[in-house]
Amino acid sequence: MNDLLVANSVSKSFGDFKALNNVSISVPKGSIFGLLGPNGAGKTTLIRIINQITMPDEGKVLLDGSPLKPSHISDIGYLPEERGLYKSMKVGEQALYLAQLKGLSKQEAKERLKYWFDKLDIGDWWNKKIQELSKGQAQKIQFIVTVLHRPKLLIFDEPFSGFDPINASLIKDEILQLRDEGATVIFSTHRMESVEELCDHIALIHKSNKVLDGKLTDIKRQYKTNTFEVGMQPQRENAQAILKAISEKFEVKPATFKNLNDDLKLNIKLAANETSNDLLSFLTSKAEVHHFVEVIPSANDIFIQTVKNN
């Protein structure tokens, strides 16, 4: 039992529209799980099912081994994409109310809020109304409210929208710290660089179906094309000859990367039975090699490629 959350062939239709078709995911304990997909793919529906906002038509969702039940509400913290707060309510009152809805006692909620308000340096906002805060400031409150009851499972839908880079990195660090303290995080976003940075597992949903899932490193391994980025410094008169020689043996495309020298820059794709050492020894026999890197597909590449192919 290493998975905190397991969704088993979950389907959901709204009228004639099938929002989720037989989707299964497993979220390992203590992981940051990226739930990816284009707009309208069904991510939000799945998240709402996990939050028991909508009921699935078919399939089961297990949290910590047992089917979802009302008491699980206090085990989950959810930061929706469409989020907001009561505009005319005071920050403190509002945070207390939302914490109590998650099952905290008033006293407990107060103490924890004080801790978080000090930590994020916003203690003097307690008596302000939400409408007096900026968007980013309101987002901070929203983040605190989401994590205050120390849920086992945190679900963040586009958590960084509305934050400036400083606060975004502050929140990113908080998320990582929560993970280190034992929380499991489901992270839904369109910003692939943050997926790259944070997620260790991903699942990709496209047109209501899950099209890809697993460990991010495994997926990358699976998507890599055995291509290497090479930079060489041949003598000027030999350059054409060397390029010709390489092209005869391997599949070659010109490459661009930043380098100090006026290099011959190439993307070289190997056949399945060739290794990087084969390539490297061949290249070193021709000229001096300055740059030799395996091309690893980015999450962005994988996302675009998968969505296009389906």
């Binding site: 028991q52 509400i73 959810y78 929706p80 989020r83 907001g84 809805l101 998650k102």
Partner: peptide
């Protein structure tokens, strides 16, 4: 309507029926 326009509804609805 206020809860809808302020977009707090989804936060609340994840806690209560």
């Amino acid at each position: 309507i206020e809860e809808k326009t302020s977009r707090i509804i989804e936060v609340i609805i994840s806690s209560v029926k």
